[in-house]
């Protein structure tokens, strides 16, 4: 049936829904033109367009009905703090841009120094809070999960496995380095 023809698992030979409906459109257009045999080129073009539009109507119906009948709709990105990571990044860029614009305005004499401090302060506050939020949400997923895991294992009375070592610590300055580093990036000593 339809669902077996259409698989979206990213394999090289997968047929996306819109491929299918485009093909249907082409087929339908061919059938329509052969059946009607229009006399003018403009009529051919419009007939073909109508047939294609018809097939995309079917696509629309498919798109409308599919979520109701399958259970594979899990497109929610995990959100922490109510916003997706990407949105947070965008937000950060925007706030930073606003700060830059404010600096430019001051250079142009459009903002007094006092106002610049005022308006800049609230913008910087916001930027800092976003940076902090990004820290928590972004890079520390792994730590959050590990913490959760430890808690649950603890509750179940089990021991967590030794965690993988992901960083190398310099003996001289205690800085954290990559696994494959040969020299410490902070003090330069050989690892």
């Amino acid at each position: 049936m339809m669902s077996s023809e259409i698989s979206t698992d990213g394999a090289a030979s997968s047929l996306r829904p819109w491929h299918f409906f485009t093909l249907v459109g082409l087929l339908g257009a061919t059938v329509a033109v052969l059946a009607v045999r229009p006399s003018e080129p403009a009529a051919v073009v419009l007939l073909v367009s109508a047939a294609w539009a018809g097939s995309y109507v079917c696509f629309g119906v498919y798109r409308m009905l599919l979520p109701l009948v399958t259970r594979q709709f899990s497109d929610q990105i995990e959100t922490i703090g109510g916003k997706a990571l990407a949105a947070l990044e965008r937000e950060k860029t925007l706030v930073l841009r606003s700060i830059k614009e404010l600096e430019f305005d001051r250079a142009m004499g459009k903002v007094s120094d006092e106002d610049f401090e005022d308006m800049g302060a609230s913008l910087r506050l916001r930027a800092r809070s976003i940076l902090k939020q990004l820290d928590v949400d972004g890079s520390s997923y792994r730590e959050v999960i590990e913490r959760e895991l430890a808690e649950r294992l603890d509750r179940a009375g089990l021991e967590p496995m030794a965690s993988e070592q992901t960083r190398r610590v310099c003996s001289g300055c205690d800085a954290s380095n990559e696994l494959d580093a040969k020299f410490c990036k902070s003090c330069g000593a050989e690892l």
């Binding site: 629309g60 409308m64 109701l68 899990s74 497109d75």
Partner: peptide
């Protein structure tokens, strides 16, 4: 309900 929402967008 994600499904209803997606269906609405499809419509």
């Amino acid at each position: 309900s994600v499904r209803l929402l997606e269906s609405g967008v499809g419509a």
